[in-house]
Design a protein around this nucleic acid. Structure first.
Length: 255
DNA sequence: ATGGCTACTCCTAGTAGA
C-alpha cells in the first residue's frame, strides 16, 4: 500500500500535474494540502476518471485539504474541537482500509513572534490534545501533511541561517517533537539518515536549482504502521518542469 | 551584495505563502 502527501498549492492550477502523477504513481491514498477551492468546486470528476474517490474540506483562496483513495473512505473529522464553521480548513481525518488517515495543513506562522506564529503553536497544542482524546498509538494511524516545521538541522539546507526563523524556531521544533511523542515514527527516518532530503523549495531565487530546501512535509506512522513501512520516497522530480508546486510529494510504501 | 516567485482576489495591487 502506498500512502502519499502533497501540498499542491492550488488543485485548480495543479490538476494536470496531479492527474499525471496519480496515473504514474498509483498511490492508494493521497493527502493533499492547499487545495484552495470550496468543496462544491472540487474536481471530483477528473479524479474519479482515474479511479479515485475524494473527501474534501476546502475553502476559497486559502488552505484546504483533501484525501483521495482508490477505495471507500469514511470521514472521521474535519476540524479540531471547538472550531466553528469559519475555521481555517486545515484538517481532514478518514478511515480507509482499516487505517485512520489524518491529513493536516499546519499553519505557516508567517514570522516568529507574530499573531500567526502564536496561532501556529496553539494549533499544534490543540492537534496533540485531539489525538490524545480520539486515538491510541496501538491503532494503525498515519498523520500526513505539510506541517510547516523542519524538525532537525539535517532537514534544513543551511541550519545556521535558518535557526530561529519561521519553520525552524525552537518552539516550532518542540511542537513537532510533542506531536511525534504521541507515539509516532517519522517514517522517512525509518529508512534514511542522510540530510538534504527536502520537500519544499522557495519559488524565488532559483532555490530548487541551488538545493535550498527544507523538509517540512511529513508522514508520521503509529507503531503498527511503522512496523509495515518498507520505503519512503520524496518525488523531487515533481518540483521540476512546467508549473510545479513549491512542494514535492512524499510517498510511503507499507508492506 | 541582494534578490530574483506563484496564486489568489467582486483582479491590474495587495495579501499570503514558507
Amino acid at each position: 500500500m502506498k500512502i502519499a502527501t502533497w501540498n499542491v498549492n492550488s488543485i485548480r492550477i495543479r490538476l494536470p500535474r496531479l492527474t499525471a502523477w496519480l496515473a504514474r504513481r498509483q498511490p492508494d491514498v493521497v493527502c493533499l494540502q492547499e487545495t484552495k477551492v470550496s468543496d462544491d468546486e472540487f474536481p471530483h470528476a477528473a479524479l474519479a476518471a482515474l479511479g479515485y474517490r475524494a473527501l474534501a474540506n476546502g475553502q476559497r483562496t486559502y488552505n484546504g485539504v483533501a484525501i483521495l483513495a482508490r477505495d471507500e473512505l469514511e470521514e472521521v473529522a474535519r476540524a479540531l474541537p471547538g472550531e466553528g464553521d469559519d475555521a481555517q480548513r486545515r484538517l481532514l481525518a478518514a478511515e480507509f482500509a482499516g487505517l485512520r488517515i489524518v491529513n493536516v495543513y499546519g499553519p505557516n506562522g508567517q514570522e516568529v513572534g507574530s499573531d500567526k506564529y502564536a496561532f501556529k503553536l496553539d494549533w499544534y497544542r490543540r492537534l496533540r490534545a485531539w489525538l490524545d482524546a480520539t486515538a491510541r498509538p496501538e491503532q494503525p494511524l498515519a498523520l500526513c501533511g505539510d506541517l510547516n516545521i523542519a524538525p532537525e538541522d539535517r532537514d534544513v539546507w543551511d541550519p545556521e541561517k535558518w535557526r530561529g526563523q519561521i519553520m525552524f524556531s525552537d518552539p516550532e521544533r518542540a511542537a513537532f517533537h510533542d506531536l511525534v511523542a504521541w507515539g509516532f515514527q517519522d517514517s522517512l527516518r525509518l529508512h534514511r539518515e542522510d540530510g538534504g532530503l527536502f520537500t519544499w523549495w522557495d519559488y524565488r531565487a532559483g532555490a530548487f536549482h541551488r538545493g535550498w530546501g527544507l523538509r517540512i512535509d511529513h508522514i508520521l506512522l503509529s507503531p503498527p504502521l511503522a512496523a509495515r513501512s518498507a520505503a519512503v520516497e520524496i518525488d523531487r522530480d515533481e518540483r521540476k518542469g512546467e508549473k510545479p508546486s513549491d512542494h514535492a510529494p512524499v510517498v510511503a510504501t507499507l508492506q
